[in-house]
Amino acid sequence: MREEDSGHPRVFLTLAAPSFGAVHAHRAKAGKTQPCRPHRDDPMCPHGRPERCRATHQADAPQAGQPICVDCYENPPPCCGTPAPPTCGDASPSPCQG
């Protein structure tokens, strides 16, 4: 780092959005349609449903983009995304702060 820049460090931070659950997808490799969500160990979601789908879906299939477990997909964590900024003078903590 150059000495003149040492007082002004920069950080490029990349954050990922939370996942709302697995969805069906069209997967292809070398032009051949692959199984949607294959798993060897057959994991289960918190609702006791398989998180796998061994079917092969075409790109225009109605299942593509649909959740594997509707309950996992429709119940996101109580705090996700960016909370609204507090109003001026409001000292109460955000519900997302631990």
Rank of each mutant, 00 (worst) to 15 (best):
M1S: 12
M1D: 06
R2Y: 10
R2S: 14
R2A: 12
E4N: 00
E4C: 05
S6K: 15
G7F: 08
G7Q: 15
G7I: 05
G7T: 11
P9L: 11
P9M: 09
R10H: 02
V11C: 15
V11N: 14
T14K: 04
T14D: 04
A16P: 02
A16I: 07
A17D: 12
A17F: 08
A17C: 03
S19M: 08
F20C: 03
G21N: 01
G21W: 01
A22I: 01
A22S: 03
A25H: 02
A25E: 04
H26R: 01
H26C: 09
A28W: 07
A28R: 12
A28K: 14
A28F: 11
A28H: 09
K29W: 06
K32E: 09
T33N: 05
P35K: 04
P35L: 02
R40L: 10
R40Q: 04
R40A: 09
R40V: 08
D41N: 14
D41L: 12
D41A: 14
D41F: 11
D42W: 00
P43Q: 15
M44S: 13
M44P: 01
C45G: 13
C45P: 08
P46R: 15
P46A: 15
P46L: 15
H47I: 02
R49L: 12
P50K: 03
P50L: 09
E51F: 09
E51M: 15
C53V: 10
C53N: 14
R54S: 05
R54C: 04
R54F: 07
A55P: 09
A55S: 15
T56W: 03
Q58P: 00
Q58H: 08
A59K: 14
A59G: 04
D60L: 10
D60Q: 08
D60A: 11
A61V: 05
A61W: 10
A61M: 04
G65R: 06
G65T: 03
P67S: 07
P67V: 10
C69F: 12
C69R: 05
V70M: 03
V70G: 01
D71A: 15
C72K: 05
C72Q: 06
C72S: 07
C72I: 03
N75D: 13
P76Y: 00
P76H: 08
P76L: 02
P77C: 11
P77Y: 07
P78W: 12
P78A: 06
C80M: 13
G81Q: 01
G81V: 06
P83E: 13
P83M: 13
P85S: 11
P85Q: 13
P86I: 01
C88S: 13
C88V: 10
C88Y: 10
G89L: 00
G89F: 02
G89S: 03
D90M: 05
S92V: 13
P93W: 15
S94R: 09
P95R: 11
P95C: 09
P95L: 14
C96K: 10
C96V: 09
C96I: 06
Q97R: 12
Q97H: 09
Q97T: 13
Q97L: 14
Q97V: 13
